[in-house]
Write a protein that binds this DNA or RNA. Structure first.
Lengths: 226, 226
DNA sequence: TAGATTGTTAATCGATTAACAATC
DNA sequence: TAGATTGTTAATCGATTAACAATC
């Protein structure tokens, strides 16, 4: 069965341009802030100013998912946030497991912002005997050997990889074989997954290099021109 | 004095499109891997295959910085890596300070990959008396009050922000006032800096939302089309 | 009603890809 | 030399922006 990948369908998720997908979390954050401030309504012009994009683009982006506004009024903040949350799959309790309970893994496990939005780390795994059995945020680190058995009994959607680069692909393969549907990869390498599995890389090194590039350009005397 | 920000100059760093800037770290990583494997030469076609982009794009990207290849031969891997490293400002010893020595801050401090590329964390600061004085990777965490004095005596280029969102802007302002030229922000908020200062955000929450969006789309039955 | 603002279509702009002369 | 591959110019494609009818 074809899923219709014509040339005009590239770089899109179900018809949504990747450029738009990358803006969705910013909408979510801004709207959350506005809800917290008890702001009732917002126009595309105001929202655009906060996003540092064009008002047309805001309307264009949102219209890909539905008609959430009202002419002459704008958008009701709480309603728009609800819709964006639905689009992003937030607040629906997503179960996660984390592999590699080193310092970064433990920092992520303790980071409450994710749990607040419904992303729950349910188990930690490591292969280092020194780390196995330690408690992090109320969870006892399990032996990596138990990963398959554990996921059979307690399936999860997302696997978080905080291992060294050398172990990342092997762990990914195990997670995928155990039914994980999304990989959140912090290891400084690109891991491959089958088409049925989603992947998101967090490459801190690449981010630092981009900052370094900017610094170099600034020194060269001109800088950013947007 | 004008820096020439015509309409055609938007979204560029000194004439380099942001889209290209974002690919530079990938080139760097791939070329490093090739050097490690002692590969001598590579063509734009081969490099493009590894990057999952078009060969024309590789040549187009590189030509923005110079002519690094040779007709009929391709690119000498070690030479091209050297040039990319120069472009990115890697291997030139960049001094950094980190504020917020919580778990994430400590994880970053211990992460040896940055130091390997010449990015050195020289001091850690925190305002929590419980944390001040602790040793992380051989560095004793200093009192945040000493930040200005410290930077006067030992200037650094990059300030890393690992504080809660609520403190991020205040700390940024202090760092900027003390002569820091680039901010690497891990706090889940957008901080503002003057035009003379560079900023790079690492928003883990946004990355997780993008993964969540993909999962939702996959469930809806179609998925990524590139 | 008059003013404001949406959702959408058309125009513009910029990034990606193709084509090819130059040349190793 | 013949084949391979660059660097660059032209063509295409996609994303952003402008314009405006619809309508609250």
């Amino acid at each position: 069965m074809s899923v219709g990948r014509g040339k005009g369908e590239r770089n899109r998720y179900n018809g949504i341009p990747l450029a738009v997908v990358k803006r969705l979390p910013s909408y979510q954050r801004l709207l959350s802030d506005l809800v917290a401030k008890e702001v009732e309504r917002i126009s595309s012009r105001e929202l655009a100013a906060k996003m540092k994009i064009n008002a047309s683009q805001v309307r264009q982006d949102l219209s890909l998912f539905g008609s959430f506004g009202q002419q002459g009024y704008g958008y009701r903040v709480s309603y728009l946030l609800d819709e964006i949350n639905k689009i992003l799959g937030i607040n629906t309790k997503t179960k996660m497991v984390l592999v590699g309970a080193g310092q970064l893994g433990r920092a992520i496990t303790n980071y409450s912002n994710f749990a607040k939005r419904g992303f729950i780390i349910e188990a930690l795994f490591d292969r280092d005997p020194e780390v196995i059995g330690k408690t992090v945020n109320g969870l006892s680190v399990k032996d990596l050997k138990e990963l398959g058995t554990y996921l059979k009994a307690a399936p999860a959607e997302i696997g978080i990889i905080c291992t060294p680069a050398s172990a990342a692909q092997e762990i990914t393969d195990q997670l995928v074989a155990s039914g994980i549907k999304g990989i959140w990869n912090f290891a400084p390498t690109v891991v491959k997954v089958p088409e049925t599995v989603c992947i998101e890389h967090v490459h801190l090194g690449e981010s630092l290099m981009i900052l370094s590039f900017q610094l170099k350009q600034k020194k060269a005397g001109l800088g950013m021109t947007k």
